[in-house]
């Protein structure tokens, strides 16, 4: 009883409903590790010479050696250093992950905005096209396009971008419809803003938020799809180092040298997981924000 009274006297602060600024964000360890790893991969892609040089240096004398002091990841069938090739492979792999997503993001955003804003028959036409594209599994779609266009890094980018497009367009269209009918767009309209101003100032920026999340989440998927295509021999062509292509080559020597497949595979897996962790965090933050 006296304790309660004491508590009362000292506290004073009551539950006043005056929301304060957002509370400080807590960085989870998994996010830090993921961030560091992605940073490392980006650094490898941007400046591979920093870690190792000569990804194409042959040395048949040391072919198919497991990890050793001289070659920490081992060597491949032509005696090339696997570590060096994993480092140099980051560039192509990352490019194949990021480029299609950026292309799909830009085109998909325009597509979705156009469909959502125009409405009527244009919306109908655009979304039915998206439906058709979407009815093919992404990997099958990409395979089909590469088969038509021929193998190569640029064609893989185009193929993956097209397979990602309908998903992006759909999300953006849904978000556009939501924002278009929101009270703040109505308020802006009643202020006498021109339609173009309303779109540029209010609709587009509020639509882009979920797009950023989607882009991050899809980089991982895109890397995987690209690696699958390379694995099938349709992506990066030898001797370009690329993780998927390296896995493909390693497959022939799996029983002789485990290390050949493990390290590029590990690089691929960790990159995708890290990107996914970052994407989820972005998503949680974005959804936590009131719309």
């Amino acid at each position: 009883m006296t304790l309660v009274q004491e508590e009362l006297r000292t506290s004073g602060v009551a539950a006043v409903e005056v929301p304060s600024r957002k509370s400080k964000r807590v960085l989870r360890p998994s996010l830090i590790i993921a961030g560091l790893f992605v940073g490392l991969v980006v650094l490898m892609a941007a400046w591979p010479g920093l870690f190792a040089s000569g990804p194409d240096n042959l040395n048949p004398l040391v072919a198919l050696q497991g990890p050793s002091r001289a070659h920490i990841f081992g060597t491949d069938e032509l005696g090339r250093d696997t570590f060096t090739r994993v480092v140099w492979g980051a560039r192509t792999s990352l490019f194949l992950g990021v480029a299609p997503v950026i292309v799909a993001g830009l085109v998909g955003a325009l597509w979705g905005l156009l469909a959502g804003l125009a409405g009527a028959w244009l919306d109908e036409v655009l979304m039915r096209i998206a439906d058709i594209l979407m009815s093919f599994p992404a990997i099958l779609m990409a395979l089909l396009i590469v088969a038509v266009l021929g193998p190569g890094v640029v064609n893989v980018v185009i193929a993956i971008a097209i397979s990602l497009l309908p998903g992006f367009a759909r999300v953006i269209r849904a978000q556009t419809l939501l924002v278009k009918n929101s009270l703040y767009v109505q308020s802006a309209t009643s202020l006498g803003l021109r339609r173009r101003e309303v779109i540029v100032r209010h609709i587009a920026p509020n639509v882009v938020g979920p797009l950023l999340v989607l882009v991050t989440m899809n980089i991982g998927t895109s890397i995987l799809t690209a690696s699958s295509l390379s694995f099938l021999g349709l992506g990066a062509q030898p001797p370009t180092p690329e993780w998927g292509a390296m896995l493909s080559e390693a497959r022939n020597y799996l029983q002789v040298d485990w290390a050949l497949a493990v390290f590029p595979g590990l690089a691929l897996t960790l990159t995708v997981i890290s990107l996914s962790v970052i994407g989820r965090t972005l998503q949680a933050r974005f959804e936590g924000r009131s719309l």
């Binding site: 009270l183 703040y184 006498g192 100032r201 009131s290």
Partner: peptide, 22 residues
């Protein structure tokens, strides 16, 4: 109508959703 819209303004029940969240 646009030029005359400023003559008539509106206040909604839920002010928060009438503000651009950004």
């Amino acid at each position: 109508r646009r030029a005359r819209r400023p003559h008539m303004q509106v206040i909604y029940q839920d002010p928060l959703s009438s503000f651009d969240p950004r």
